[in-house]
Nucleic acid binder design. Structure first.
Lengths: 353, 353
DNA sequence: GGGCCCACTCGAATCGATTCGGCCTACAAT
DNA sequence: ATTGTAGGCCGAATCGATTCGAGTGGGCCC
């Protein structure tokens, strides 16, 4: 086999073969501009003969100034991010929102300066970026984006800059849920929170841990719960998963003498885990234990209709996408605050006396 | 606010300000090449003063001929793909395998010519591509990639071309699992398969449906099961999910007079759904019903230790990534066939007589 | 038959950075 | 002191396509 010396044909080659100029050939491909049908056909034929696969995206994007790619910055590694249904829904919403752009989604992680010459947020050919979740080191990324003039939107993460934020009323929503529990008569309430710090420390909620919290979502929801139950004890989970909820649930429920009548979980997955723990321990939900979730996702395999704060994850993603579309069109995009609604299912009831 | 007339500074601007040539400034940034420390510092300083955010990725990729992006082609829309843990694991493996490249992952879907001017596989600035799953219209994509000279690897999808495939022994593995069931004494066995055609038709397995099957994975696994239980009845699910498994399970188990003693599911999620259906109907697993899965994922929330064919999803992804790395380095990459192992859990037992 | 307009095509500049060969200078060796 | 050498820096070509203004031919209308 002769070495792959065969240089791939370029638009110029095609044009030459078709007997037209490069500019005409370009027009024939992009469709914009007046080109006679005969000429176009000739160009296309030449392209086929030469095995030309269409304009090089790299050159095209340089010239056009747009790459047709939207970046999504996740704070975790790929696997972790996609284990969370909320993130997936959000991502799906984004892809829906940017559909008019016909752009691809480039996954980027925020994991430090990454290994080696990684294509980080600083050197990715993206037209716009969605930042998901907040991260301490986001500041740097945002600065780079600003300098590059790349439009960005943040979902659930205040950046401190002037980039639009898509969020929900984490604090108020949780407060509403907590108030509902109080109205039912609960006073012995425990909390299971999302990770509070970047290290995802698992363990008891301490004043210290709460103070040093760096993740806005968890902090806000915690504040909402605390507004109603100031002294509730609780645990911080290391992730949003059934597994973590199960573990937290076991810890919170194992001591019969000192058992809460209700548990506020900061995500549906955690809530599902808590319910599973209760079942393991023979504790009836909701008769003996009320459980409140957050998200409003359908937990595959959960038998209950979870009482939870439904947030429109897909809509959030879509709003982010649409905001980007608007920004790319030169308009000014604004922050959007969604509201979550309390869905009352069958996992909450008055406490047993 | 004056219109955004402020043109972003280019490398040339920085060079001018630093009093050096563009070429020198370039070297100062990329680090390759001899540049005195003093000069480099001056360039960097000038860059800071001008708010220069580093070389434009578009121009760089045109010149260098590489974009630092690897495409992942999924056969479904984003949401659907990420509901499947196996896909997620695979994706994670890919990102691990291509780590040496420091490349980003660009999500592409294979959904026809997409809407509008979408950045499809035909016009994405990717250095390499991983094709996940096989799809009838993959042929076209493969052709485009070949013409473009973009290295590609296929995971579980024979392309008919000379691109490397990463796969497992779907047929033999399933056969081994089926044989195990037969050894236990089962003869009344039903099947729950993954979607057999592109339309994801849900319903009874018919000769017709099996013949027209277009998805290799499902077909192979089916063949493996049929090698042991040629006349097993079964259902095709519309997706790999607990929900679908639940539905299929209900259908297969609802008639007490005509109930299988074992069910072979083509994925763990389906198996989990089947088990749930059994529980609903008061059928004990494994005493009254044995269930065999496929994948070896941890189904969040499943109480059982599923008997299943464990496939190394992450390793498959990693192998694909590594193959790409090798191909990009000019080496020839070869297909890799992994083997799955039968994990015997607590969901299979001899049939009750 | 002449003038005008339209439709199509072409040239050339441009997008922004990279890279290779050459050149210059300063220092070292003889 | 002269030549050799190497480190540093610069010029210019190049990557491949797009785009806009200019040019040209033919057809149409009067």
């Amino acid at each position: 086999m002769q070495t792959d010396a065969a240089p791939r044909p370029t638009l110029a080659d095609v044009a030459a073969r078709a007997g037209v100029s490069a500019s005409t050939a370009s027009l024939a491909f992009s469709g914009s501009g007046p080109v006679s049908d005969a000429t176009k056909a000739r160009v296309l034929a030449a392209a086929t003969e030469l095995g030309y696969a269409g304009p090089d995206p790299r050159a095209r994007s340089l010239r056009r100034g747009r790459s047709g790619i939207v970046g999504v910055v996740l704070e975790e590694r790929v696997r972790a991010a996609f284990l969370d249904p909320v993130k997936i829904q959000t991502l799906d919403g984004i892809s829906e929102g940017i559909a008019p752009l016909g752009a691809g989604l480039l996954l980027l992680t925020d994991t430090g300066e990454a290994g080696g010459q990684a294509v980080g947020i600083e050197s990715a050919p993206v037209d716009a970026v969605v930042l998901i979740g907040c991260s301490p080191r986001l500041g740097h990324s945002v600065e780079v984006l600003r300098r590059r003039g790349i439009p960005a939107v943040a979902i659930e993460g205040q950046t401190g800059e002037d980039i639009p934020e898509i969020s929900i009323d984490n604090r108020n929503a949780t407060r509403r849920g907590a108030e509902y529990l109080r109205e039912l008569g609960h006073s012995q309430v425990s909390l299971v929170t999302l990770p509070l710090d970047a290290e995802r420390t698992r363990g008891r909620l301490t004043a210290e841990l709460e103070r040093d919290s760096t993740t806005a979502v968890a902090t806000e929801r915690l504040a909402g719960a605390r507004a109603v139950f100031p002294d509730a004890t609780g645990l911080a989970a290391a992730a949003s998963s059934i597994e973590e909820g199960l573990e937290a649930g076991r810890a919170l429920l194992s001591d019969p003498a000192n058992r809460p009548t209700a548990i506020i979980a900061q995500s549906d997955l955690l809530a599902a885990g808590v319910i599973q723990a209760a079942e393991e321990l023979g504790i009836a939900v909701p008769r003996e234990l009320s459980v409140l979730g957050f998200d409003g996702i359908r937990v595959d395999g959960l038998q209950h209709d979870l009482t939870t704060l439904v947030q429109p994850s897909v809509a959030k993603g879509r709003a982010a996408g649409e905001a980007l579309v608007r920004m790319l069109a030169g308009e000014q995009a604004v922050s959007v605050a969604f509201v979550s609604t309390l869905h009352i299912g069958d996992t909450t009831a008055p406490p047993r006396h």
